[in-house]
Amino acid sequence: MSRVRTTNQAGRREGAFRRCRTVFAYRELLVNLTRTELRIRYKNSVLGFLWSLLNPVLYLVVFSLVFQEILRAQIPRFAIFLLSGLLVWNFFSASLGGGAGSIIGNAPIVQKIWFPREVLPLASVGAAMVHFLLQAMVLAGALLLFRHEPDWAALALLPLALLALTLMAAAAALALAVLNVHYRDTQHLLELVLMAWFWLTPIVYNHQLIADRLGANDWVAMLNPITSVVLVFQRALHNPPPGYIPDVSLWLYTRNTAVLTAAAFLLLAGSLRLFGRLEGDLAENI
């Protein structure tokens, strides 16, 4: 709730820290919007939340069929391998897709009521996070079903990887949401970019195939930040025998993830800044 408030052009240059503080004051709205988004999606559907679980299960069946049975991919426990990466990807792409349309989709309230607009894309990230958790249950079920043991030491790295992923998703969702108001191409472009990005990320194939091709230049593949996160998830959950993902020490994974987290923080700060510059005219451009 705002007590003293000044509205003028200077408001655009508010720092990232102050913006975060305002968003934090509206955290209850964030929770409510996330809940609404989830509730609306499955309202009036018989299966409701089961749809969130059905999506990865179906992916699992189709991709396993195609890659394991038809293309003969040589990855043991392909289902678990696939789900580990898909979990990460689904969270990221749902955040970006939902975030991009979040401000335009809520035009009526944006034009009528003041509240920190950052909350809208962040609620999309929140909804994606809930789906992530539901789908993680599918993965946990698959682990139990196949009696597959994860890499317990690497599991400890998952929270950090998830943090980095969330920060990146939030940064991207914020930027896309506000850009989409000014350039409606954003969401169409996003669909194409996400499609390409999916295949550039080692989700349905193993990273080692790429790393071998690139040889000494394999750092190029690591420029895709999602790859780092996917590798951590695959390492921890799929826990493959050597030769499928870079067979380096856990320490290197930790270092990569830490660097990624730091970069994600910077990205988020930049994104908040961009959001502040562009949000002033939202109500009239929407």
């Binding site: 509205t7 003028n8 009521i113 003041w114």
Partner: peptide
């Protein structure tokens, strides 16, 4: 109400504000 920013000048207020710009803005039909 803060949904638009003035091009010049500023608006200052102190207090909890409720804006009845449109009744039921923010309601979701579902």
């Amino acid at each position: 109400a803060g949904t638009m920013q003035p091009t010049a000048g500023s608006i200052r207020l102190n207090g909890r504000m409720a804006a009845l710009l449109e009744l039921g803005a923010g309601f979701h039909p579902d």
